[in-house]
Computed example of a mutant assay.
Amino acid sequence: MKRTILFLILTSFLLINACGPSGPSDNEKLRAEVIAVHDEVMPKMGQLKSLERKALEKAKELESQEEANSAAVEEYKALAYDLNHAHESMFAWMRQYEQKDGEMKEAEVKAYLDKQMELVTEVNVEMKAALEKADKLLK
């Protein structure tokens, strides 16, 4: 009798564990990857604006000189534009990104997250390129 009860308890325990959650789904993993790409460059948002101001100041300084080099001025203005565009691109991505799946089916969520991965990767690359360009030009 004791063995039967022990067997039933053990079997119940195994069934409960077998039916429980088996870990994060593919979509949950993909969502985490999207956020990881975002989180990689998000802390550099303030740096973008700071470098943009420096580039504009340098352009203004060069313009005020009698022998102003217009190519150099345009280069600094272009850098400021790139830095501002990268900053705005991140905010644009964040505004349109949906945290919740809502009424979407699994396949729709996957397609959405694949597209978001593509978009946030573009923003990531743009930010890194602008920062690298600023590092070369302003230092």
Rank of each mutant, 00 (worst) to 15 (best):
K110P: 07
L119W: 04
M104Y: 12
A78S: 13
M45L: 03
F13E: 08
M104C: 06
E40Y: 05
E98P: 01
N84M: 02
E40T: 05
K44W: 13
V34D: 02
I5A: 10
E132L: 00
M90Y: 03
P24K: 13
G20Y: 08
K60P: 00
T121D: 11
T11C: 09
F7T: 15
S25Y: 15
K49D: 15
K100E: 15
K58Q: 03
E33Q: 06
K133T: 00
K77H: 13
K54G: 08
M45N: 01
K44R: 14
L137Y: 08
R3E: 11
R3N: 13
E108Y: 15
P21V: 02
I9P: 05
L6P: 04
V34R: 09
E74C: 01
V37C: 04
K133E: 00
D101Y: 06
A68V: 05
R31S: 00
L83C: 05
Y76A: 03
Q99M: 05
F91K: 10
R3P: 03
E61D: 10
E75C: 02
A130E: 01
L62I: 07
A32Y: 10
R95L: 12
R3V: 07
E108M: 09
R3G: 11
D82K: 04
A80L: 14
A129R: 09
P24W: 12
E126M: 04
K49F: 14
K136A: 10
K2V: 13
G102P: 07
E28H: 06
A72G: 10
E52T: 12
E61Y: 12
M94S: 04
N124I: 02
R53N: 15
L48A: 07
K54S: 11
N69A: 07
A59I: 00
A68N: 09
I5C: 12
A36D: 10
S22I: 15
A107G: 11
